[in-house]
Design a protein around this nucleic acid. Sequence first.
DNA 1: CTGAAAGCGCTAACAA
DNA 2: TTGTTAGCGCTTTCAG
Lengths: 330, 330
Amino acid sequence: MSRTTIADVAREAGVAKATVSHALTGNRPISEETRAKVLAAAERLGWVPSQNARALANRRANAIAVVLARNPDVIANDSFFPAFIAGVESVLAETETALLLQVVPDRDAEERAYRSLAHGRADGALLLDLRDDDWRVPFLEELDLPTVLVGAYDGPHPFSCVRTDDAAPIREIIAHLRDAGHERIAHVSGPLRYVHSRARADAYVAEIGDDALLREGDFTAASGRALTAELLALPERPTAIVYSNDTMAIAGLSFARAQGLSIPADLAISGFDDDHLSAHLTPALSSVSTDPAARGRAAARLLQAAVGGAEPRTEVVDCNVVHFRESTSA
Amino acid sequence: MSRTTIADVAREAGVAKATVSHALTGNRPISEETRAKVLAAAERLGWVPSQNARALANRRANAIAVVLARNPDVIANDSFFPAFIAGVESVLAETETALLLQVVPDRDAEERAYRSLAHGRADGALLLDLRDDDWRVPFLEELDLPTVLVGAYDGPHPFSCVRTDDAAPIREIIAHLRDAGHERIAHVSGPLRYVHSRARADAYVAEIGDDALLREGDFTAASGRALTAELLALPERPTAIVYSNDTMAIAGLSFARAQGLSIPADLAISGFDDDHLSAHLTPALSSVSTDPAARGRAAARLLQAAVGGAEPRTEVVDCNVVHFRESTSA
DNA sequence: CTGAAAGCGCTAACAA
DNA sequence: TTGTTAGCGCTTTCAG
């Protein structure tokens, strides 16, 4: 491993360690001449400052973190996460900031992870998969770690927040289905403890008037299939199902077809997230594109601001667009 | 931020700092009694050791890194990366190791990033998107940073390596197409500077005998479309196209259909990667599932071994499975 | 404008 | 089995 230190550079340049430090950070006036000397020496030796030493001395890690309490497989089977991370990275890249990603198996490990971050491992954290009454919010507040909440959170908190309006697209889809004559419209939601699932489900219930045809899934294909089966077995089966993600919608679509139903004639179907292949299915799946990358960018910017001491603020990213395709056409 | 340090814990437990350290690491014998005392004190104070201080003192960061020189968007539009990361994390989670992800805009920043890692920011690195004659390999060797190469690399190197056999599935697909009577079989590859693209293209050329119907794409839908157009405009157009990923295959499929061709009757099509929706398309797309998560797990294990001082070794992950579906059926 | 020296929080000798 | 001390490589007073 690289053993070149600031002392080597100082010696090579014939200056003090402090001068090297300041030549790089610009934290105090340096004559152009010595600065050039230092930079040249650093270049020659291939020296970069140790982030650990630097973090220890000035409490700045040049990294932000995302701690994931979910099964790692979800990273792969979720179209939100990769795109979100891509958005985050596109902002971080500008400042050569790294993203620390940690998956934890349980609550204990999760608390340790956040404590470790607050102890200088990262400058801030992004909170995903928010639940109502999420313990992490007060916990991070006490840890005093700059944080950005991705998704709505109802309780009081001192953090910046990136929100979207998930109710509007659900209302739009239902209106569209009603225009096409549908009266029994069902909804297969994600886990209702997640605020975004809940927002969609609430919009559905508000619009329909009751929750008789609401079923709580967990975003997996298996649950999409099972709940579709349940709904289709009803005495008066629904003529349309609004799903809370594309994975469940496609599983439902497959199941319905296997039952001999034709889509959309017998059953209209819509998804959420607009997976990049959804438009290519037959029938093409109506869905809501959500631009997770835009939210990633917004979250990263807000976090960088928070790390810099800015006041918290809530940013509503207007990114949800409904795409009506064959699976809901009249 | 948390300001509790090892000194606070030592005071609270009535022991020396070193004792606290050793109580946690188990690096030297400690009486059960004091150990319990220390752990209780740490618990009470909510203390976790500072990774920075620890890394500085013993050169162990408890993190491994992936540096990405590509456009962040690719993270989202690539089915390999998220699944690979999921596999990596599933192994890292066991040891509470974090993954440091950094996107860099240019070669300079990339070198700096790797230097920083070698300077104690991470214990090792995973190298993706290998090219033949990749400058990073000798560079990391000189930096003496434990590394695992993901993908084949021909030059000499002192690192562990995770390989797959990408030629076999291509041969299998071509054999299958020939059985169905196809004689003009084309291949749309990825960038040939990437070793995995090249391996597939080489297998194609070896099997077919020439590269007249080989076209070099870049894995994007746009290139899939453009090269399909080019191939279909040939005087003697191919009757089958083997693509190097699903994205290009689906773009090609859409284009061909828009030209009035029917799939697979007029044109057989196969992809690579087996995107999770490919089986749901109509016609369902023949593809090669590659289990990137398995490679992620293997890479993470090899890297942890390398960090621990193990000898480098090459692991061939046998994960490629061809799925023949409607898009290539006779 | 520059240098010297004191820490940041931890681990690893070295003693006891 | 435990305590004491000297760094790890950097930033930042404090002097000059």
